[in-house]
Each structure stands twice: as C-alpha cells, then as structure tokens.
Design a protein around this nucleic acid. Structure first.
Lengths: 121, 121
DNA sequence: CTGTATCCTCCGAGATACTG
DNA sequence: CAGTATCTCGGAGGATACAG
C-alpha cells in the first residue's frame, strides 16, 4: 500500500493541498487494473467472479489486491452476504462514483488533444 | 516510447474512442516526473537547466527523457535559439496547456474525496 | 466462490560518468 | 549549457498452485 509521492512540493506556485489532491487522485487512477475494475462497477454491484470474468487476462491475485486497495482508499464498498455459500459484492462509494467527473475531463481533453495533433498533420 | 495499454477494450459500455482518450490522457500524467515538469512550465517558457533547478532530485537523464516524450506527445514545444551558446526553450503547446482542465477536475475530486473520507471518521 | 502464497520477470528510474 | 551512455536495482505485475 505504498504512497505515490510526487516530488513537486517545493514548487511555490502549487498550494500544498492542491498537490495532495492531485496525488490522491492519481493514486486511484494509476496501475494497470484500477480503471478497468472501476469500469465494471459503473452500472452497479458486482461479485468478485463477475468482475474477473469481465476483465480479460486479470489474475485473482491482482483483482484481490486492487479491490483491497480501492476499498482502503474509500472508492469501493465491500459487502459480505452470509448466504450459503457466502457471496461478496463490490460497489462504488458515493465519493468513488464521483471520480467519473475526472474521467469526463480526461475524455474531453483526450479527444480534443488527439484532434489538435491530427490537425497539424 | 511505449504505449500504456489499458485492458478494458472489451467492456461494451465504454466506446472505444473514450477509452483511447482516457489512455492518451493517462499517458501524459503517469510517471514520476511529468506532472512536476508541467508544473514548472505553467508560467511560461523555461530552459533545460532552469527546469532542472526547479525540480529537486531530478536527473538530466530523466528530464531529457520526459521532455522528449512530452514533445512527441504534442504537450510541449521545443525551440532552439541559435545564439552563442545555443539556448533551448520548452513551453506548453496550446493543447498541452489545456490539460489544466483535467488537473482542475483532479484537484476538485481529490479535495472532496478527502473530506468525504474524513467525515466518516 | 473468494481469495492467498510463492516464485519469477521485466522495466521505470537512480547513480555516475561522459560528450559536443 | 543541453544533453547521452552504462550500469544497477526495487517493485509492479505475471504464473501457478493452493486454501477456506
């Protein structure tokens, strides 16, 4: 559970709280599997095996690890239903779901940037 | 110059162009030094040595590598002034500067999320 | 079904020295 | 000043097997 530590704390124009906020956000977005996992949860609760099935090539080790990290970071909620056999469901927290606004900004910039690059050939 | 390849192309709810756009954006934000480098360019052109001085602990190797990558991705423009000795300046492209909108969204979410996490202790 | 435990590989990044 | 060339290493992530 290591913290990514961006090293521009000394740049005077960046208030420390802004830098921390960007750090927090990057923490939730970086790594190979976090975005794919979040994508599977957009339309509601899912069980471990469902998520695993929807993400080609992910291993249970990585899925477990990333879900635990997302839970610790308050992005997803894990619920144990003690049926037989037990089933476990993952879903976004309210705050976790709101990261969609960041993704929207990324989509918008990404599309515009690709267009801008194409326009100069 | 490897491309980060997010592996959720098969998730039907994500239009491929949106996935590509998020990929493009992540490409520009990930890694240890890209954000610090961009932060130094917010207020205008800078020379290699100036950027190096403003970012503690970065090595010329990494600065060179990241600047080249940002240039190839159309984020920064590199200008050679053939004075004696030559001086070289780096600055945002128009499209590169616009990534600030993404950072704004990240700051907003990051601050709100931190607050949300604190509120439930 | 919902994960852990081991072992292993590869690459991002650091250290250091050098070049035009 | 504006970089490049080597060498090295830790850690993210993969493969495979196993557990409750």
């Amino acid at each position: 559970m290591k913290e990514i530590q961006l090293d521009f704390n000394d740049i005077k124009e960046c208030p420390h709280s802004f830098v921390m906020a960007v750090n927090d956000t990057m923490n939730v977005l970086t790594g190979k599997w976090k975005l794919p996992i979040m994508a599977t949860l957009i339309f509601g609760k899912k069980r471990f095996k469902e998520i695993e099935r929807e993400i080609p090539r992910i291993t249970p080790r990585m899925l477990s690890k990333e879900l635990r990290e997302l839970e610790l970071n308050g992005i997803v909620k894990r619920t144990v239903h003690d049926s037989i056999p037990v089933s476990i469901e993952y879903e976004f927290t309210t705050s976790g779901r709101a990261i969609k606004h960041v993704l929207d900004a990324m989509v918008e910039w990404g599309l515009e940037h690709r267009q801008a690059v194409l326009n100069r050939h």
